[in-house]
Structures are given as C-alpha cells and as structure tokens.
Nucleic acid binder design. Sequence first.
DNA 1: TCTTGACCCTGTAGTTGCTACAGGGCCTAT
DNA 2: ATAGGCCCTGTAGCAACTACAGGGTCAAGA
Lengths: 134, 134
Amino acid sequence: MAFTIGDMGKATATKIETIRYYEKIGLLPRPARTTSNYRDYGQAELGRLSFIRRARDLGFSLDQIRALLSISGDRSCDCAGIDRIAREHLLEVDRKLADLAALRKELKAAIDSCDGGIVADCRIIEALGPAQPT
Amino acid sequence: MAFTIGDMGKATATKIETIRYYEKIGLLPRPARTTSNYRDYGQAELGRLSFIRRARDLGFSLDQIRALLSISGDRSCDCAGIDRIAREHLLEVDRKLADLAALRKELKAAIDSCDGGIVADCRIIEALGPAQPT
DNA sequence: TCTTGACCCTGTAGTTGCTACAGGGCCTAT
DNA sequence: ATAGGCCCTGTAGCAACTACAGGGTCAAGA
C-alpha cells in the first residue's frame, strides 16, 4: 500500500528521474515523505503515473494529459469545460484508432507475405498516407 | 505532381523546419532542386512524410519509424528481418489499440455523464491504470 | 519597372520531455 | 562496520522539434 519511487518505476516501466521530473512540473503531486526523506507513494499516485505513461505512449503531450487528468479531478460541476475537453480528445482518439487499425492491417500483410516466402508489394506507407494520394 | 516544401507542410500539418530536420537526419531523402534552389518534391515524398507524421502521432519514435519504413523499402528478400520487425510492432500496435479503446470508453462516459448534468465518478484514470490495481 | 508580400534558403539557438551523471545520505546484511 | 543497494538534490546532455536571424526568389499590382 506504500511504495518507494523505485517501486513506482518498476510498476510502470518509468525511470526514477522521469517520476521526479513529473513532480517538478506539477504533473504528479508532491508525495508524503518518510522520516529519512524518501518519497512515500500510495495507490492513487501509482494509478495517476500509470495513466500518464500510457497516455504518453499513445502520443499525447504532457499538456494534453494535464487536460485529461483535469476531467478526472474536476468536481466543480464545470460540465461545459469537461465536455469540451473530452469531446476534443475523443475525436483525436478515434482518429488514432483508425490509423492504428490501418497500420496493423499492413503489418499483418507484411508478415503473411513473408510467411509465404513472397516479397509482395508492401503498402505500409500507403496505410498512413496523405488524405488524397492521387 | 510537384510540391514545394510549403505544400508538403500544409498537406501534412508539418512545420517547414521539421521537414528540413527530417531531411537532415536522413528520414526523408534529399529532394531534387529547382533552378532557384527550392526543394522540389513528388508524390512519393509526400506519402513518406505523411507516414512519418502519423506514426509519430501514434507515439512511435523516429528510430521505430525508420524500422517500419525499412519494411516497405526492403526488396532484398530478407524475410526474417522484416518479419521480426513487423511482429514486434504488431504487438505494440495491438497494445496501443487496447489502451485507446479503453480511453475512448471513459471519455465517452465522461461526456455522457455531463449530458445528464450529473458529475458521475470519473474513471478516466482507471482506464489506463496499472496492471493489478488492487 | 520596381516594390511589396509571400514564399524559399542556410544557419544557430531555444523548448519539451526526458535521461544520465555527480556527489552525497540511508539501510539491511554479512 | 562496511559493502551493496536504494534514496536524495542538483546539473548537464540528448531527442525531436520550433523559432528566429539574415538573406535570396518570385508573382502581382501601382
């Protein structure tokens, strides 16, 4: 139930320096300290860090993640604000889902064509090509 | 059929400086030049840039993108190599797809709860929480 | 024609988001 | 009591852009 910074890092595949960096820029709260001045984290901080790391991995900026976290933290009933942020990010998430699905399809095709021993024409670039290719 | 660097930037929402940066580090080929030394791009370069930008947006590093592009460019029948790279990235793409789907679900829930005028308990952090929360 | 504005060029320096030390303290085990 | 592994606060470096500075090109209009 209580974690050191090292535990947090192991649980989320995050370098200790990165966790301290998130604290410095205010993305993670300053945690309690032990008598020997070690950072002392709980379950909530672990969840928050995991969210940050996985959202980063999905290509969101730290500022965007700050906005997403504010949706969670907002108890002021500012529904208009929450709604706007959530809708914006939902659009972006749907776009990313479509791009990833297209990329997945072409990776699969590349693997399958290798299985058959044929170097088929690879369309992996076309999967994420411009809106109007021709 | 022939684009300036500005056209490329507009078509892919990329800053001109970024395109020159990709050229400098070898991610984009050195394009032909006009008589007045302007960069002169074709459809292939546009497709490649679009791929790079959208893959970046999905959280892939420039080195990973270099590897993905090599799948496309490889005509040497090095199926083992292509297969390994493609399989690695397929796993990562599937993980990202699952995370995005979870995030989408919680964004949708946040929007819906706002529609109802109720500030429901927001589970957006839990969507991307650690593997074993409790 | 010439000049004004929107484009392009090469550089270099700054920003974001980490990442890697340096120099030092705590803590468990032998 | 000391060796190894963890923690602390800094500061400096790296990746991937981003923003000028200082200058050339070019189509359009007075």
